[in-house]
Nucleic acid binder design. Structure first.
Length: 782
DNA sequence: TAGCCTCGAGTTCC
DNA sequence: CTCGAGGCTA
């Protein structure tokens, strides 16, 4: 055999191996070859073709890396037009579609071939004698663009048909798309390398096919599914669409594994529901499902209306992404004074609900998106719930707009807005004088997880606050039924809505009585709720619970020098200082006094926890205070000098100077002691420490629970008990209940419709309990 | 000091 | 649900 003949034989062998690997990977979803081996064979073929240029053919796998750029896309006329489909959005419309077919064909419950509708780009592929010769976009349906060179780079598209007995001429229609995982990976890499990221998988796929340089297309992770045929010559197709799909698969085309055959309206809607539920688990974006009458005879009989077939329809999911216009960018002032910008938009349906507003988080986010008044924006419901502005359509920006900027003063109270070094949020400096902050504080105070005043929502707090009835949260406990009725009258007067009927009067007084009763019920509370209700910065539910468990008593907590808060696990310098700052303010102490005076009772006061004993000494606390140079090692040495037991700062400084401590320690401590308030804080600590120690019960630890040291996470909806109840019961058995899954999670309790947390648990191999298992466990350890 | 894990805070709509 | 930031740990 000649050298050239041998090379030709080897090249043919390599091509067949590589195409086979492609087929197994993209069509059968059953890879037979490691990526590295694939690359090795491809390189060998490439070298072989370089040495023997006569061996290069357009259907060689080496050509998938893309050829040099072409200048434009030639128009391609579709001999059989690429149809568009009619849309159905409701069950009703699907039923109508099915009924029309039943009536016209005089059949009951006809059979349909159904499949997901991929959100990609429709294309047509032409094969002559089994070889891929031309690929075109859909275009307007009659004429598309020749993108053959780009399509050659898509590995899921066979360059040569498999098996035997295929038509002499075959046009295959299908969708080019970008799998979600590949899209994500591509963007991550692009971001890391400073390249351009793709906006979404659909645009990514469309943009990739319109690249003039196929070598760029080759870099994009595109995939393909076949769903129909166009021109077929020299071949008799099977009688049904579903059988044709099976043929396409045999010939080497990927066909959606989700396609099925169902019958009647019920079959169609059932399929729609099943796919809808699976939608987020699918590895690609879909925007609905497609129903096609399965038998070709029936299709011919049904015919067409204008451009769309009567025998097929797309049943669309409610759109998850929509465009709308920004009417204005407004700001909101929260409980902590955080000023958050949000967009007021023209109402638009997104994922089945009407959206008019979306948060923009903070000034940085507005700048990043560059949202301006009048802009057209793309809105999406993040995690299917919360509306979010994805991006601005800059091409549609009206002329003469200015970038948005954060106002310099609070829109509610006029105080200056300030931003802490290194923080993202701007805050209103008005604190307690800002009506917005006061209002939010009251709403938080009354909320379910705080004092739980039923019926006191945002609406009423707003009026109570505006009309001056409630300045501080303690004022709530001064309100009478008459106050509320008068307030309501004034509010109605203000709004100009006053139907003064006897009935309205009765309804109003019943409302007032109920609210007063709810306020009264809230007087009996727990320390945890009370602490949470105060609205101390950085102190939410979880921290409030820890404080309650460790210190047990509000009278102790409200007078504790701040470094002692750091004795509690999960409380560090920031939170401890925040607590100290809050209780240092006379106004806040007054509010606590007022609340207790007006009948608020903390019903679970108890001794501080004996676990505190460890570390309740001056040296440990001193090390906690984050004084420069006074470390864990140095603090005991400082205490040993006795300098802190002296009567005046000057004495302390003298004692320190006389000690054998390093000079830098002495200097930094002396400087610290010179600052206002620090000496006083030290004196407080010296009295508080022994007092606290004396209050600690000598008793042993509580009995061990069966879930001690375990962390549980709840997700989905439980049926027998609420999430809060489940949480409380698990905690009673010693477990910690966290909000998110990590590798530290001991087990995840998954109820109905569990979402991303369940996925995460599976990914990390965390143990998963269903509700039955939880109930059985609780039962057993009751 | 970086890199988890959590918690807090703000948010939308029914 | 998401983002930002605090606390803890290797």
């Amino acid at each position: 055999m000649t050298d050239a003949a041998q090379a030709a034989k080897r090249a043919a062998q390599l091509r067949s191996q590589l195409e086979d690997a492609n087929y197994r990977y993209h069509v059968l979803d059953d890879p037979s070859m490691a990526d590295a081996q694939y690359d090795r064979l491809l390189r060998e073929l490439d070298e072989l073709e370089a040495a023997h240029p006569e061996l290069v053919s357009p259907d060689s796998p080496t050509q998938r890396v893309g050829n040099a750029p072409s200048s434009a896309f030639a128009p391609v006329r579709h001999a059989i037009p690429m149809l568009s489909l009619g849309n159905a959005f409701t069950d009703e419309e699907v039923a109508d579609f099915e009924r029309r077919i039943e009536e016209r064909l005089d059949r009951s419950a006809p059979t349909f071939s159904v499949e997901p509708k991929l959100d990609g780009l429709a294309i047509s592929l032409r094969y002559e004698d089994g070889r891929f010769v031309q690929g075109a976009t859909r275009g307007d349906g009659a004429t598309g663009e020749d993108v053959t060179a780009n399509l050659r780079t898509v590995k899921a598209i066979p360059l040569q048909l498999r098996g035997q007995g295929w038509p002499q001429v075959l046009e295959v229609r299908g969708e080019v798309y970008m799998p979600l995982a590949a899209f994500k990976a591509y963007n991550e890499r692009a971001l890391a390398e400073g390249g351009k990221v793709l906006a979404n998988p659909r645009n990514g796929a469309a943009g990739s096919l319109r690249q003039l340089d196929p070598r760029i297309t080759a870099q994009r992770p595109l995939a393909f599914y076949a769903y129909a045929v166009g021109v077929v010559e020299g071949y008799e197709l099977p009688a049904t669409h579903s059988a044709t799909l099976a043929k396409l698969r045999d010939w080497g085309f990927p066909v959606s594994g989700e396609s099925q055959v169902v019958s009647g309206t019920e079959g169609l809607l059932g399929y729609y529901r099943r796919i809808g539920e699976k939608r987020h688990a699918l590895p690609f974006d879909i925007d609905g499902v497609v129903y096609k009458l399965d038998d070709y005879a029936g299709q011919r009989e049904m015919g067409f209306v204008s451009r769309a077939p009567r025998w097929a329809i797309a049943h669309k999911f409610p759109a998850q992404e929509q465009s709308t216009t920004v009417e204005s960018v407004e700001v909101n002032v929260g409980r902590t004074g955080a000023v958050t910008p949000w967009a007021l938009m023209a109402p638009v349906q997104v994922g089945g609900v009407v959206v008019t507003r979306a948060t923009l988080h903070n000034a940085d986010q507005v700048a990043r998106l560059d949202v301006r008044n009048g802009d057209t924006v793309i809105v999406r419901r993040a995690g299917d719930v919360i509306p979010e502005v994805v991006r601005v359509v800059v091409e549609q920006r009206p002329p003469g707009t200015q970038p948005w900027s954060m106002p310099s003063h609070c829109p509610v109270c006029g105080s200056e807005l300030v931003r802490e070094e290194g923080e993202a949020v701007w805050r209103c400096s008005g604190e307690l004088i800002c009506p917005a902050q006061r209002k939010e504080a009251v709403i938080h105070f009354a909320s379910r997880r705080a004092m739980d005043i039923e019926g006191l929502g945002e609406r009423y707090v707003e009026v109570l606050s505006d009309l001056g009835y409630v300045q501080s949260v303690a004022d709530l406990y001064k309100l009478s039924v008459d106050d509320l009725l008068e307030m309501k009258r004034r509010a109605d007067e203000r709004d100009g809505t006053t139907p003064e009927t006897v009935k309205a009067g009765k309804v109003a007084s019943k409302w007032a009585e109920n609210l007063i009763e709810a306020i009264d019920r809230s007087r009996a509370t727990t320390l945890e709720r009370f602490l949470n209700a105060l609205g101390i910065e950085h102190v939410g539910e979880s921290t409030a619970k820890a404080l309650a468990a460790w210190f047990g008593d509000i009278q102790l907590i409200r007078r504790l020098p701040w470094p002692l808060f750091k004795r509690v696990p999960d409380i560090g310098g920031e939170v401890a200082r925040s607590l100290g700052h809050f209780f240092d303010q006379a106004g806040n102490q007054q509010v606590i006094d007022d609340l207790l005076e007006r009948g608020v009772r903390i019903e679970d006061s108890r001794e501080p926890s004996p676990k505190l004993r460890e570390g309740l000494d001056l040296a440990t606390v001193l090390a906690d205070m984050e004084i420069a140079k006074v470390t864990k090692v140095r603090a005991p040495q400082v205490v040993a000098t006795g300098a802190l037991d002296t009567a005046k700062p000057a004495d302390a400084a003298a004692t320190l100077a006389a000690s054998d401590l390093p000079k830098d320690v002495i200097d930094s401590l002396s400087a610290w002691l010179d600052e206002p308030g620090h000496w006083a804080l030290l004196q407080q600590l010296r009295t508080a420490l022994p007092e606290l120690l004396a209050r600690l019960p000598a008793g042993a630890e509580a009995a061990a629970g069966p879930l001690d040291g375990q962390t549980a996470v709840l997700t989905g909806t439980l049926s027998a008990l609420s999430r809060d109840e489940a949480k409380a019961k698990l905690e009673a058995l010693g477990a910690k209940v966290a909000g998110s899954v990590s590798k530290k999670t001991s087990f995840v309790v998954a109820g109905e419709a569990a979402g991303s947390k369940l996925d995460k648990a599976q990914e990390l191999g965390v143990e998963i309990w269903d509700e039955a298992r939880l109930l059985a466990f609780l039962e057993q350890h009751a």
